[in-house]
Amino acid sequence: MKAYDAIVIGSSAGGMYALKNLIQGLKPGFRIPLIIVQHLSPHSDNYLAHFLDQLGILRVKEADERESIKPGHAYIAPPNFHLLIENDHTFSLTVEEKVNYARPSIDVLFETAAGVFRDRLIGIILTGANHDGANGIKSIRSFGGFTIAQNPATAESDIMPKAAIATGKIDKIWDINEISGFLNSLSNT
C-alpha cells in the first residue's frame, strides 16, 4: 500500500459535524497528521480545536507558526490567518488578502501542501457553500497526490464538493464513513 505523509482537509458550512464524524470514524492511534481549514468567523476562538480534541481520538490543536507537523495530531488553521506548509514540514501563518473570500483559505493550504508532500498527500473536500478548495485539488493531483470529495448527496451543503468534483481531478467520491474507513486502511497504527 502506498504511504502518505499528510492529509489536508477543507470544510466550510456544516463542517464542524462532518469533521467530528470523520475523526470519530478513525481508529485510536491513527498516525497520519491531519491539517484542516474550516471556514470560521474571524472573531471565533479556538472552540473547534477543543471540541474535536475532546473526542479523544487525535490530539487536535490550532496550528502555531513554525510548529513542526507530527504524527497522531490534527491541526486546525487559526481563524483569520492563512495556513501554509514549508519545505521543512513546519507551518507558516500569514494575514495576506482573503482568497475566495476566505481567510484561512483551503486553496492556500492545499497548494502549498501539494508542493511539499507531492504524491504522498491526500486532499479531502467536505461540505461547504463556496468554491474554495477546487484549485487546491488541481494542485494536489498535478503533484500525484490522492483526492477525495464528500458525496454531495450526503453533504450538508453540496456546493463545495460539487465544485471540487467539477475540476475532473477527484479520485473518489465518498460518504464520511467511507472516507474514514479508507484512511484507517492506510494508517499503520
Partner: peptide, 9 residues
C-alpha cells in the same frame, strides 16, 4: 522570509 509565502506570491 518564510519561503512558502514568498514563493506563492
Amino acid at each position: 522570509y518564510n519561503k512558502a509565502h514568498v514563493k506563492r506570491r
